[in-house]
Design a protein around this nucleic acid. Sequence first.
RNA 1: GGAGGCAUAGCUCAGCUGGUUCAGAGCAUCUGCCUUACAAGCAGAGGGUCACAGGUUCGAAUCCUGUUGCCUCCACCA
Length: 901
Amino acid sequence: MTKEISKTYSPQSIEDKWYSYWLSNKYFHATPDEREPYSIVIPPPNVTGVLHMGHMLNNTIQDVLTRRARMQGKNACWVPGTDHASIATEAKVVQMLRERGIKKSDLSREDFLKYAWEWKEKYGGIILEQLKKLGASCDWDRTRFTMEPSLSEAVIDVFIDLYNKGLIYRELRMVNWDPIGKTALSDEEVIFKDVNSKLYYIKYNLTENSKNEIRNSKKDGNSNLDIRISDFVVIATTRPETILADAAICVNPNDDRFKHLIGKKALVPFINREIEIIADEYVAMDFGTGCLKVTPAHDKNDYDLGKKHGLEVIDILTEEGFLNEKAQDERYIGKDRFAVRKQITIDLEEAGFIEKIEEYKNQVGTSERTGAVIEPRLTLQWWVDMKKFLAKNPQVLDAVMNDEIKFHPANMKNTYKHWIDNIKDWCISRQLWWGQQIPAWFVPNGEFVVAKTAEQAMINFNAKYSNFEFSISDLKQDEDVLDTWFSSWLWPISVFDGFKEEGKEDIKYFYPTNDLVTAPEIMFFWVARMIMAGYEWMGQKPFSNVYYTGIVRDKQRRKMSKSLGNSPDPLDLIAQYGADGVRMGMLICSPAGNDILFDESQVEQGRNFANKIWNAFRLVKGLTIKPDTDFAADLLASNKISQQWFEARFNIALAEIEEKCKDYKLSEALMMIYKLIWDDYCAWYLEMIKPVYGEALNQSTYDQTVVFFEKLMLVLHPFMPFITEEIWQEITERKEGGSICVAAYPNVETYNYKSLQNTFETISKIRELRNSKGISPKEAFEIVIKTNQTELYEPYQFLIKKLANVSSIQFNKDAPNYVSLSVSTDQVFVKLNIEIDAVAEAEKIYKEIEYLIGFMASVDVKLSNEKFVANAKPELVEKERQKKEDALAKIEVLKQSLAGL
RNA sequence: GGAGGCAUAGCUCAGCUGGUUCAGAGCAUCUGCCUUACAAGCAGAGGGUCACAGGUUCGAAUCCUGUUGCCUCCACCA
């Protein structure tokens, strides 16, 4: 009867088999029906991306949630897909072309896009294929792509809609410019990094006129302070190359040191442009020299200052961050800004313009995607008016604050609120080609309309201008594309075709989705904006729960990244430990919102767990079964007791597991399942019912054991889908097909719990004794139990005998020369065949009595404290009294055994 | 500069509205075992002034205040 089953679990052979089985049976495919819907939309990974550990964590969590919902009878739908990731993908395509010797600038838009699509077709599916390896139960028939025609159409429609509602405008403003990507970025796409830089103190000579004026006023006694007359002013800057774009110098009007300079003129070094010294309270008197150089073209604050004071904007940089001819100085024109910074420093120093250079720590904005240092740049861009948008949709904030949309962990609400309260307009245009082209149409005189097609644009133009003179061939569509997030924010709607006129069944049924699992760093990019889009176009929230995962870090708390080389390849891990092992390794220590410190030993633990389950399966499968009628009544009764115990344990644990899952505490739930299977089922239950070697097990116990096993597999399945499917199929001997992934999840049932606490403790204590005395497990003991609660032991004697190798148990008898063990409030005496040291035994008992006396004293302190008795809950006081009684009883038993020695 | 969070065993974390399921779990460590399911295992053991200092209370890991250290987000004075 014993089947040949491999001694260790080998996931490799099993995982592919079951995954294709699931797919071919369409278990993950969902269409609307009468069941309660459950839906998740995947945070679409970049189309050219490769699976990393962050994805693993994220998608494992989504899969657990989805599989649980599916088993709980809901119509579960997890929609997968990818994001066109305009800047990231375009950068990769440009890079690929460069390697092939092709420059983007040599290509037409059409040709470039052809290459980009080719690239997408080639690499676009990789990450989704990798997710399958992980076991992700996505509805692959619903796979979407943010740039597929229908989703792009939705994006364009939404743009037009917003424009018509007056929520989108076009304006010349200072934006974050990425000189590598050669595009504008939104504020969210800029990452500030600490850098060690330098603060350069540069002298600007005053003009001769100004010098004279100052001298004269000094002579006339008009100067109100005794200041040294200098022929120059000193400014402090971290960017000396931008002096060539200076439009003014600014001081604080309250700064007595510089009052005499206001209105005077200084000369920009080298190019000798005359700039005025102006006054504004914006300037901090205690920073640098108190004199600020104003460069409106290359600094946001300077731009605002320049606007206020009517200063000229002198843009000396190209879109790639090179100096242009406006820089005037031949030495620097055509060179990179950083190269110029170095060179001009040397030149200034040589020419005597540098007063000093200090080490300085500051933060520099970089592009999230290309890593380029951001350049503030004045350009014409498209914007979404966020203040107006939010005024129209107050639920965007309210729904989160009143938990209609629940954040896990909840403290993320604060961050969300702060961002919403301080929201700035969203720059949505990008100077890229890969993406949805902005549906604005221009005519040669610069006028434009927003329209879906050129034909529609003509109609709009004619409506707008009575004497519109251009023809359709004169129209030129805006060159720019939209920010990727301008399509992602529609994701929960667009994947269900919510913007289409036809086919509303899906969106009606699956929207709003239930859970969103994502990283906290894209709360603003994505989560917040999806909420906005949800209310604007669906009039409803997009999801009910947002689970923020942590960042996956290594043991040294460093973020896992390719560049650091500290991130294992997820697929290698899966190949080595199995997908189930990796999933467990990821989840076992990843509380919501906290970073997870990933270590391969956790994956090893996962693999070991799978192996443990596998071997429990081998045991159960290998049992010889005989009908109940072949067994003695007392053995059947004993097995019944074991079953009852486990049944109770299972239901208690299941209730707790469900509690944890409800709170999204998945790692805690998994830990409970782990202990339930390993400790309760394997270490205790299976040992309890396991027949002695060579004997058979009775049928009814076997059946129940299989039922338990099946239930355990059901509960574990969302976490470890592959091994549970394999075992479920085998153990339940399913011949007709079916799958655990659509099997019904167990409910908590009523149970009859009888505590085996004392029995288990007795067993452990005897084992410990054996261990400490170095006695073989094969040597059986005779024991005597002294207790006034024999009912706690008597029915379970068979367990003590079996699991602690005890040959006989007697109650409340004299036990001379036995070793005494303390079990709860009772004493267990064990007869050893070796000489026992009576003195040492007595000492042990003395110590125990001593401890109990001390313990009682502490209880007495409480009980004699009037305030305690008066204020504490009555049951608590009762508990304390009970403690005292127990201790007293125990002391009595100990005294007796002392006398017996 | 603003906001939030964290500090409990060697490591990672549980400990809800203050009171024996209050000092816990898993891993790691140590000891003894290849005991016919499993050495990817079995049976045990050790290990913590609950960051520090005050306060509230009959009673504090838990509540309050302060200190120190760390993390995250936001803002960005050149």
